[in-house]
Design a protein around this nucleic acid. Sequence first.
RNA 1: GGAGAGAUGGCUGAGUGGUCAAAAGCGCUCGCCUCGAAAGCGAGUGGGCGGGUGACUGCCCCGUGAGUUCGAAUCUCACUCUCUCCGCCA
Length: 426
Amino acid sequence: MLDLKLVRAQSDLVRDSLIRRGEKTDILDALLEADARRRAILVEVEELKRRRNEASAQIARMKKSGEDATDIIAEMKSVGDAIRDLDDELSVVDGRIREALLAIPNIPHPSVPLGRDESDNIEVRRWKEPTQFAFEPKPHWDIGTELGIFDFERAAKITGARFVIYRGAGSNLARALINFMLDLHTRQHGYTEVFPPYLVNRDSMVGTGQLPKFAEDMFKCEGLEYYLIPTAEVPVTNMYRGEIIEAALLPIKHCAYTACFRAEAGASGRDTRGLIRQHQFDKVELVKFVHPDTSYDELESLVNNAERVLQVLDLPYRVTMMCTGDVGFSAAKKYDIEVWMPSYGRYVEISSCSNFESYQARRADIKFRPAGGGKAELVHTLNGSGLAVGRTIAALLENCQRPDGSVVIPEALRSYMGGLEVIERP
RNA sequence: GGAGAGAUGGCUGAGUGGUCAAAAGCGCUCGCCUCGAAAGCGAGUGGGCGGGUGACUGCCCCGUGAGUUCGAAUCUCACUCUCUCCGCCA
């Protein structure tokens, strides 16, 4: 969330941010009104509390010396009632303020281009050109099903639509990719691996910004305030919730493999075939906690780290910068990495890398102690996929397919697959 | 799942209705001492919100949330987490 002081002092900036994002601004007006009321109550109630504290000390003294304090106690009774009434109103107003703050998205960085939706995103760079085929390339769902490495039908039977069973070499491929990605990031990019819970509590979901606004996209446990994680970003970022980190420890860089669960509400009918949009998928996530001065450099290196996966796998991709209308709710700036997907005839998002600045850190209360001591300040948090495993498998099958339906395994993965070079039809 | 114990500042740990943001110790910072260091001695050491140019100052915070009271770290209730024992279990 944004700093209430900033919202108060520079409400025009926040209003402009909402407009550039294509959002309504009535929430801001409600916030400013509640804030004004809160400050008025505060002045009044603090004065009453000061009087009560003074009287309390006086009563204590009188009782100690055996004097009669009946009068002053009676007087304080009404003061107590007045305090209670004001405190009650204050908590209502505080609730409104918090609700509004949680619903206001981050302010886009000045470098983020103005735009309405994804069509206004900007291509930043491209690596290799789209794969050319001397034959008609097949979509990955056909390739994988014919190779016997995907089983969508049985997955639908045991669970439902938008689930898959990987089988044989397919299952090995998923495992190989996860290990390959984790090894790359831990051994070459300096990330420390963590393996967190897949279920998190409500505070964690609020901390990273999934709740309260995006509740319908999440799976929630029946009868429990636990949620299935939509991304490892949630548990990993919340590892440090409510903590103050020594400045010398920054930047903290974690990578994590987890399964991810998304209800995909509002996406019915989109990408219904194949691995692109599943309710459960696997992902290796990169998460950083950094000093505010360095967060934009750290964003660039985070994107590079994620790109490296595709480079080593030799898959064509491009990097795009999200415009104001498409940048994530909690993000100040976001790059997508899009892999070439022959069945779509276009690039498809395979990674999303964001700098949240202090937006998540304020929600989750993650601070650092500056070198040499002093007041704790909010860290900046960043994260990005490095990468989504299902979409990587899809891209790999489609880009590495051969006319006979077999698929060549990229060299970097072969040691993870017992030396297998080609997945062939049974 | 059952039984019990506990949650206080960076840490250990006192505090069971009233000048308690809270003893003491450790740690840390500064000073004295020293060639330097250790030891010793002295002083200082939590956070949030607000007011004041400033010295300074008001409110809140003792796991979380309600309640009792003129007044709650202290009493009541609910919840969360931790630890010990038993049971169960991958």
